[in-house]
C-alpha cells in the first residue's frame, strides 16, 4: 500500500516531462528581444516530445502534445491546428520508429531525431505554403531545423539525468523504500 504523499510524488514524477515541455514552450514563445532570432529560434518543445516519446511514451500523451501545438498556433498566429497536427505526426513517427533506435547509442538516436524532425518540418512547410497559397521561404525553416538538431545533444544529456532520477525514485517508492 503506497502512502498518499508517495502517490502524489508518483503523479508529480509522471508529469515532469509535461511540465518541462510546457516550460520550454513558454521559453520558445516569449519575447527574447534578440534581432533575427525569431526567424531561426530552435523549436524547443519538440526536444522533450522526442526524448520522452522514445524513453517513456506514457508520460508524453498525444492529447498533451496536441494542446501544446494549439497554444503555439494561437500565440504565434499560425493557422489553428497546424502545429498540433505536426506534433501528433511527429510523435506517431517516433513511436513507429522507436523499436529501431530505442536500445541504440546516442548518435543513432540523434540521427533519427534529425530525420524525423526533417520530415515533420517539410510536412509543416508544405501544409503552410498550401494553406496561405504562397511558397514560404525555405532557408529560415532549414536553419531552424539545423539549430534544433544542434541543441538536441545538450538537452538529451539533461533529460537523461532527469530520466534516471525519475526512474530511480519510482523504483524506490514502488518498492517501499
Amino acid at each position: 500500500m503506497i502512502q498518499p504523499s508517495k502517490r502524489l510524488e508518483l503523479v508529480f514524477l509522471g508529469s515532469l516531462p509535461a511540465i518541462i515541455t510546457a516550460l520550454l514552450t513558454c521559453a520558445f514563445l516569449t519575447s527574447k528581444h534578440i534581432n533575427g532570432l525569431n526567424q531561426f529560434m530552435p523549436v524547443l518543445p519538440i526536444l522533450p516530445i522526442f526524448y520522452w516519446g522514445t524513453m517513456q511514451a506514457r508520460d508524453m500523451p498525444y492529447w498533451f502534445v496536441f494542446s501544446v501545438g494549439l497554444v503555439m498556433d494561437s500565440v504565434m498566429g499560425l493557422p489553428l491546428g497546424l502545429t498540433s497536427l505536426l506534433f501528433i505526426f511527429f510523435l506517431l513517427m517516433v513511436h513507429a520508429q522507436r523499436k529501431y533506435f530505442y536500445k541504440e547509442g546516442f548518435v543513432i538516436k540523434w540521427g533519427y531525431f534529425a530525420i524525423i524532425l526533417g520530415v515533420a518540418n517539410i510536412a509543416n512547410w508544405v501544409l503552410l505554403s498550401f494553406f496561405i497559397q504562397h511558397p514560404e521561404p525555405l532557408v529560415p525553416a532549414l536553419i531552424q531545423w539545423f539549430l534544433t538538431m544542434c541543441l538536441y545533444p545538450v538537452m538529451h544529456k539533461c533529460f537523461d539525468a532527469l530520466y534516471e532520477h525519475i526512474h530511480y525514485r519510482r523504483w524506490q517508492i514502488l518498492h517501499g523504500q
Binding site: 492529447w63 496536441f66 494561437s74 491546428g81 498540433s84 497536427l85
Partner: peptide, 28 residues
C-alpha cells in the same frame, strides 16, 4: 479523434470561421 480535430480546426481556420477566432483569443 485528435487528428480529425486538428484537420477540422485547420479547415475552419482556412474558412475564417468566427468560432476559431474566438477560440484563438480565448487561448491567448
Amino acid at each position: 479523434m485528435l487528428i480529425t480535430a486538428g484537420i477540422a480546426l485547420l479547415v475552419m481556420s482556412k474558412a475564417n470561421n468566427p468560432a476559431i477566432t474566438r477560440l484563438r483569443t480565448q487561448i491567448t
